[in-house]
Simulated assay, not measured.
Amino acid sequence: MNLANRITIARITLIPLFMLCFYSYSNVVNSGHAPIWTTTSYVLTVFLFVLAAGTDKLDGYVARKYNQITNLGKLLDPLADKLLISAALIMMAEAGMVPGWMAFIIIGREFAITALRMAASGRGIALAADQFGKIKMVLQVIAITAVLLHNFPFSLITTFPVDQTLLVAATFVTLLSGCNYIIRNLSYFKN
């Protein structure tokens, strides 16, 4: 197993750790006692999410730079992204931090596109991700991080909910990127 694939597997193993920390984090948030940014669970939860999301760029960079692109990596990399985003959104929706309909749209889009890719793969067609999909992923990570941070540091200068605005933007871009992906690849499914 090459380095790029090891990084991707490490990202997948960070997801259960993030989830475990999130339970403690959400208890602190819901208790309303101490400022949440002073708690270990808060710092650790945000750190693990950002670390897991950040390794997405690292494994891609390593795979391209050292010519370590493999079929396993092509399978695991997008799976790791979907697992991380889905786990975060489901847990945040359960904690009341994210509206359920937004989580449903984002996760639903991921499942729909994955199903299309699998159907195309069964026909011997490889459907590549496009720039719109990559922008979507970056915006999702930024929005989820902002919500996890409870609008910090924006809350220091404004009462405007930047975190929720970013989440709405991520949902909208996710929906648009899914529609774009389907339209762009529709010709493969006409027969």
Rank of each mutant, 00 (worst) to 15 (best):
I90V: 14
T159A: 12
S155M: 11
T158W: 08
D81S: 03
V168Q: 15
V162A: 09
Q164P: 07
F132I: 08
T114V: 13
Q131G: 13
I113K: 02
A115R: 04
A143L: 09
L186R: 14
F160T: 12
G122W: 01
F152H: 11
I157N: 07
Q140K: 01
I69F: 02
G108N: 03
F104H: 09
L156Y: 05
Y188T: 00
A146N: 06
G73E: 09
I183E: 03
S187V: 04
N180K: 10
S155Q: 10
F189S: 10
S177D: 08
T174H: 13
L75D: 03
V173M: 15
A129D: 04
S86C: 07
V98F: 05
F104W: 07
K82G: 01
D130L: 04
L167S: 10
G108T: 09
T145M: 13
D163T: 14
N185Y: 04
L167P: 07
L139N: 14
A169C: 05
L176E: 14
L186C: 06
G122T: 00
V147E: 13
L72W: 00
M118K: 13
T158C: 11
F189A: 06
A119P: 00
I105D: 02
A170W: 09
T70H: 04
S187Q: 08
Q131I: 15
C179I: 15
S155K: 05
M102R: 12
E94M: 01
I144K: 07
D81W: 04
A87S: 12
L166H: 08
L166I: 02
M91T: 08
T159D: 11
S155V: 15
R117Y: 08
P153I: 03
V173D: 10
T165S: 13
G73F: 10
T158G: 14
M118L: 13
I69A: 03
E110M: 07
I107R: 03
F132N: 07
N185W: 02
D81E: 05
K82P: 02
L186N: 09
L127P: 03
E110H: 06
F154I: 12
E110V: 12
F152V: 10
M97A: 04
A120K: 01
I105N: 05
D130P: 03
L149R: 06
W101C: 00
I85R: 08
A129Q: 05
R123F: 04
R123G: 01
A93F: 06
T70M: 02
L148H: 03
A93H: 03
V98N: 10
A120L: 02
K134P: 08
V98S: 00
L139Y: 08
F172P: 14
L167H: 09
I69S: 06
R117M: 11
A87N: 02
L79T: 15
P153Y: 12
